[in-house]
Structure formats: C-alpha cells, structure tokens
C-alpha cells in the first residue's frame, strides 16, 4: 500500500521526477485523496501545459484558483502572472507596479536576472501555502501540491530560492527567497515525493534525484512512487500452460496467448526494476498500478487516488 501517512499532513507537497513519468497524474491523484479526506487542496501546475485541464476535460485553468472537484482546486502558475502579482503585493501603489510591470527596462532586468522567473513562480506556490494569504480575500489551503517541472536540469527548481538569495544577497527579494528556502527545506512544512517508472533509466535517475535532493538541496524525500507497474496476472504454472497451448494455436488465439506471455515478461521486468529501485534509494518505495486505459481522465485519477487511501 503506498505510503501517504504524513505526506499530506505537510503544507507543501512537491511531486518531482523526470519527464514522462506521470507527475501530473500522481499529483492529481494525491490531491483527490487528500480532498476526500476532507482537506482543502490545490494542485499547482508550473509548465503552462494545462495538463490538469485536459485530464478533467475543461477549458484552460490559467492563473486562477479553480475547483475541479469538491475541495480539489487547481492553478496553472506562469512567471508573467506571478511577477505581476508579486509587484502588486510588494508595491503599495498600484500605479507604480503597473509602471514597473509594463516597462521595457524592467522586463529586460527580469529576463536577465538568473532565476527570477523561477523565483516568482515558487513565490506564488509559497503564497498559496500561507496560513494567512497575502492575496486579498483569498482562502488558505490545507495542502499545496506542486506538479514540479521535469528534472532535466537536476534539482534546479527547488534550489532556486537559495541560489537566488545568494545572487541577490541583500534586499527584500533576497530576504523573501531565504524565507522560502527555509520553508522548502523544513521537513515539517514541505514533503517531497519522487515519481519513477519501472525502466532502467528512470530508476537510475530517480536514485540520483533522491541523492541530489538530500545532499545538495538539503530536502528530505518522503515517498518514492514507482508508477505504471504491471500487475502479475499469471502464475508461473499458468504461463507454462499458456506456452504449451501457444504451440498449437493460430489466429487470434495465438495473439491472445503471446500477449499474455508478453504481459508476464513485462511484469517480471517491472519487479526487477522495483527491486533495483528499492536497493538504490533510502526512501521507502510504493508501487502504483499501470493504467491499461487508452485515455487518461477523471476516472483513472479517481482509481489511482484510491491507492493512496491506505
């Protein structure tokens, strides 16, 4: 049974992993499980890909807090809107923040400052997680789940606040970045879940990601989810019978029998990768079942979320 105890008791849950492992699916399923348990949850997408909107078959969500299901909210956080909101919160006079936001020079500076775009994005996540929101008339959330960007550049995203605090050194942004870094690295405030796939490279990369998160960022990892694991449908004895029957079969029966053999081979390969992952990481590994459905929709998220109910 996947481990969830504790994870959803944190204020911020970062779901991370390499591209294509199912971070969005796992984030939404975790969100749904938490919402079912009575928590007010928001899932933050930061890639502007509107995956959550597509899965729930609705128009793009954008920089808005939108309720997908009871207590399950979603937002798509992009740097431009985050920057604008940040300026509005920082500068008491709206005319001034407007002036700044619209100025060409400011936009150059924003583009030129390493990590500033990522920084304001993380700043928005942090704002969502505050017990007293900075945004006017905004309701706080119990849990903020972050569907993190693919770990192409290592742990870059989570390191942003610290890097930024170091670059800027002084000033309000630096101070705030340091505060956000403190939240992200506090195991009582922030939980991290790594999503992996039962294939060689994703397993290696997940192990490396765990090490980097722990050693470089100083964040502890709460859960590792091996996603899309093939169930063991056939026993060894059954596979023997299937293999034997295959000899004499033809047509669709042969196709069906070889699909069964293929399934059992893959299930075995997945077990092997699961064992490897368990050996390579220090965090307990839970498995999530492969969804044999051709289309990913609310029903599949619902099904997956039940794996988190414990």
């Amino acid at each position: 049974m996947p481990r969830i105890v504790g994870l959803l008791d944190k204020r911020i849950v970062v779901v991370t992993g390499k591209g294509g492992v199912g971070k969005t699916t796992v984030s939404l399923a975790l969100g749904l499980a938490a919402a079912r348990a009575g928590k007010r949850v928001i899932v933050c997408e930061v890639s502007s890909q509107e995956n959550a909107a597509r899965i729930f078959d609705r128009p793009p969500i954008g920089f808005n807090e939108v309720e997908l299901r009871k207590n399950l909210w979603a937002i798509s956080i992009d740097p431009d809107h985050s920057m604008r909101e940040y300026l509005e919160l920082q500068l008491p006079v709206k005319a001034m923040s407007d002036l700044l936001y619209k100025s060409r020079v400011f936009n150059y500076l924003a583009a030129a400052t390493p990590g500033l775009r990522e920084m304001v994005t993380i700043g928005k996540i942090w704002e969502l997680a505050l017990e007293t929101r900075k945004k006017k008339r905004a309701t706080p959330y119990d849990v903020v789940i972050v569907d993190a960007p693919a770990t192409g550049h290592g742990v870059g995203f989570l390191q942003t606040p610290r890097t930024f605090a170091e670059i800027a050194r002084v000033g309000p942004m630096s101070k705030q970045a340091a505060r956000i870094d403190a939240t992200l690295t506090d195991p009582n405030e922030t939980g991290v879940a790594i999503v992996a796939l039962p294939e060689e490279m994703p397993v290696n990369e997940s192990a490396k990601l765990e090490r980097d998160l722990i050693d470089d960022v100083g964040i502890c990892v709460d859960a590792v989810y091996m996603n899309a694991v093939f169930p063991e449908r056939f026993s060894k004895q059954e596979i023997k019978q299937i293999e034997a029957a295959r000899g004499g079969a033809d047509g669709s029966a042969e196709v069906a029998l070889s699909a069964a053999v293929d399934q059992s081979r893959r299930a075995a390969a997945h077990r092997e990768q699961l064992d490897r992952l368990r050996e390579l990481v220090q965090t307990p590994v839970s498995e999530l079942p492969y969804a044999f459905s051709p289309k990913l929709g609310p029903a599949q998220i619902q099904e997956l979320s039940e794996a988190f109910d414990g």
Binding site: Q90, M96, L100, G171
Partner: peptide, 15 residues
C-alpha cells in the same frame, strides 16, 4: 529614476 529606485528596493543593490 523612479524605476531604478523601486528596483533597488525590491531586488537589492548588489544584484
């Protein structure tokens, strides 16, 4: 001039 001082306030001078 105004913008520069606002920016300085937000980002810090070192940056």
């Amino acid at each position: 001039g105004v913008m520069f001082s606002v920016l300085k306030r937000i980002t810090g001078l070192d940056l």
